[in-house]
């Protein structure tokens, strides 16, 4: 793949990952990821003056977690991701690429509070950035790492869904 083709493939993968997660198509999301994929949600807390990790795991960990969702009581209010890919840097020699994207996650209330009153209301749920790494091969690009660096630390009820 040329550098331009790789950059386009990176952008395409980031946007497809958003759409799959929006649709809660977790397996399709993970199919975009290589076997050694690592996922984490991090934040910096000015309260405790420390970097924090709110969630992390391998591709297998994520798959297990998503498969267990039906056994848990969750807020089923869907999350939708609005993403803009800012930068894509391709290292052709190493066969890798990195990308930085901004992401806004909106939550549309379904069953989280009092559905008769709240269902249908959309709110900004999380503000942050995706820091992604990709492996580039003849077959295309695969995620090998996603660090979601979020600014939002007031997370209220939280969620069982990855961002």
């Amino acid at each position: 793949m040329s550098g331009v083709d790789t950059a386009n493939a990176v952008r395409d993968s980031i946007y497809r990952a958003c759409l799959y997660k929006d649709d809660m198509a977790w397996e399709k999301w993970l199919e975009l990821c290589d076997d050694d994929y690592y996922y984490a949600i991090t934040a910096y807390s000015p309260e405790i003056s420390n970097d924090m990790t709110y969630l992390s795991g391998s591709r297998e960990d994520m798959s297990t977690m998503m498969n267990m969702l039906p056994k848990h009581n969750s807020d089923h209010s869907p999350l939708k991701r609005h993403c803009s890919v800012y930068t894509v840097d391709v290292d052709e020699k190493a066969g890798t690429a990195t990308a930085v994207s901004s992401v806004l996650v909106y939550q549309t209330q379904l069953d989280g509070i009092n559905c008769h009153v709240d269902a249908g209301e959309s709110k900004v749920f999380i503000v942050g950035k995706y820091h992604d790494k990709f492996r580039v091969s003849g077959d295309g690009v695969k995620f090998i790492e996603r660090i979601v660096k979020i600014d939002t630390r007031r997370l209220d009820k939280g969620t069982h869904y990855p961002i």
Binding site: I41, T53, Y54, L55, S56, M68, H72, N73, S74, D75, G112, L155, D156, K157, G158, T159, H160, Y161, P162
Partner: peptide
């Protein structure tokens, strides 16, 4: 985090309740 983080399994359930 696995149970008590904002993306953990238990805290979210408690807060929903």
């Amino acid at each position: 985090n696995s149970i008590w983080g904002p993306f953990g399994r238990n805290l979210h359930e408690d807060l929903l309740a």
